[in-house]
Amino acid sequence: MQISKSSESTDQTSALELDNVSLSYDGGPNVLTNLNLSLPSGSFHFLTGASGAGKTSLLKLLYLAQRPTQGSVRLFGTNVTAAARSALPAIRRKVGVVFQDFRLLDHLSAFDNVALPLRVANAPEPEIKSNVSELLSWVGLDEYMDAKPETLSGGQKQRVAIARAVVNRPRLILADEPTGNVDDTIAMRLMQLFMEMNKLGSNVIIATHNEHLVAKFGFNRLALENHRLSELPPLAANGAQA
């Protein structure tokens, strides 16, 4: 019992904690060095940094595709760095990810791609049907439910990927350049979706290069520079606010 207690955080308000986290690939130089961070439930952040700064790498640590070389990651009070392999699926189901390269399954329709997180969690098929259809309509793809990813444009694929990331109402949403391939109108609509999810209680972290987006929505920033992470206040903007 001692052990399981020590892996549960006593601070319930912290959804995400990094404790002295470093990462290097295959014994190479550090991509991330000594990151410390604690985010309360319901936070919304942009993750910024130059190309190659390590944004995707940091997100990988958070969606458990990568273990830190040093330090520990806590999600919703559980030390995921120390967690057993069998404990990971349950944690991953609480995290929705929009991958930078989408990672849609090519042989599945848009509908089935979006349905995947629900199927994996054994949700009943009628519930899957209504949730997925509703969400695909919301991202403007109701005409494309049966389309295979290869027949979709980059922006359409991105919207499928976003729908898949949020369909099971995850507690943490990680989006890697989610507006990279869409025009401003759709980008606004997608931001609105993330903000809705955030209102419902999800933590959201959006990695982006898009200064314009960061300026328009005044959210706190996490900035990666020289392998280190700093929390910055909202970018002073032209009055626009969420």
């Binding site: 969606y63 699926p89 991953r92 990810v97 399954l105 995947l116 997180p117 994996v120 969690a121």
Partner: peptide, 16 residues
């Protein structure tokens, strides 16, 4: 490999 990796990342158990 890629399909299995995506399934795992969205929370599939090995049994699934």
């Amino acid at each position: 490999r890629e399909v299995i990796s995506v399934l795992h990342l969205i929370g599939a158990r090995d049994i699934y």
